[in-house]
């Protein structure tokens, strides 16, 4: 290329090459740094391939006690399964009802006062950070064993997650229609109902379905600390050394979660 720009092009290419090399060097350094940190922590947490290999006979033994799964009282697992689904359903429903006002308070454009906004966000972060299992442990000691603490545990955590999600969606709505309703003399609540809610509804419904799916998974685990459902059946069978029944529980849990996943993603696709 023998144009008037040849010199400038060559200069530019040289500069670009040096930038590229510099970026590459930085990336390699950072990755090396990460690798060193991971290597150092591996021994701290006792990562050991040797232990896995040594433990294979134990795993085989355990597995042997579970196989073949005992299908004789499969029907007796029906009530716990239904209970698990009910725990998830009620936990999600309570979360939806509680999140609605909280989300409005936690969004810049709908919160009545910055202090309220700040406090609500803080509260929601608190709800989100505590895992359902911890809630369940605390609640079981408060209200006793059974599905009720499970429902509350799921509701508390899901409220935090759902409210934050909806608040983010509210903050990202197109302001044009909102302004048009303001200009038409609509009141605050009317603007929220007609201008904001229709815009966030599809994403929010999709997220609720997703949350329901997650709640079913959580509900199965919560039973391990006494909060009802399939998890409770599982831990009970283990404590009584009836490992064949444990295996059946695990299979039913897998089936339940698989079904919930399928239905949830199917519905989510239909919404969007």
């Amino acid at each position: 290329m023998s144009s008037q720009y040849a010199a400038a092009v060559d200069q530019g290419l040289a500069r670009e090459a040096s930038w590229r090399h510099r970026r590459m060097a930085v990336r390699l350094l950072v990755m090396a740094g990460f690798a060193i940190v991971l290597w150092l922590s591996a021994s701290r947490i006792h990562l050991s391939l040797m232990n896995i290999i040594l433990g294979v006979p134990n795993m085989a033994d355990f597995f042997g006690r579970m196989v073949p799964p005992d299908f004789s009282n499969l029907m007796s697992l029906a009530p716990p399964t239904i209970e698990t689904v009910q725990i998830a359903a009620w936990g999600t429903v309570i979360a939806v009802v509680a999140s609605a006002p909280l989300a409005l308070l936690a969004a810049h454009n709908t919160s009545p006062h910055p202090v309220i906004y700040f406090v609500t966000r803080l509260f929601l972060n608190l709800l989100r950070s505590i895992n359902e299992l911890i809630y369940a442990l605390l609640l079981v000691s408060a209200v006793g064993l059974g599905p009720f603490p499970g429902v509350l545990a799921i509701a508390l955590h899901a409220t935090g997650m759902l409210a934050k999600f909806v608040a983010e969606e509210i903050e990202h709505v197109n302001r044009g229609p909102v302004e048009a309703l303001q200009a038409a003399g609509a009141g605050r609540m009317q603007i929220i109902l007609f201008g904001i809610m229709p815009q966030v509804l599809p994403a929010v419904v999709g997220y609720i379905l997703y949350r329901f799916d997650v709640s079913i998974r959580s509900a199965t685990v919560l039973g391990l600390v006494g909060a009802g459902g399939l998890g409770f059946a599982l831990i009970t069978s283990m404590k009584m050394f009836k490992y064949h029944e444990t295996a059946t529980c695990i299979l039913v849990i897998i089936l339940l979660i698989w079904a919930a996943d399928a239905i949830s993603s199917h519905l989510q696709k239909k919404i969007l």
């Binding site: 044009g176 048009a180 038409a184 009141g187 201008g195 229709p198 599809p202």
Partner: peptide, 20 residues
């Protein structure tokens, strides 16, 4: 609100609620 009731506004970007 009363004043705005008597004043209608039309915007460049239409500003309709598209999903309704």
């Amino acid at each position: 609100r009363k004043a705005r009731q008597e004043i209608g506004m039309v915007f460049q970007q239409f500003n309709l609620v598209t999903r309704l």
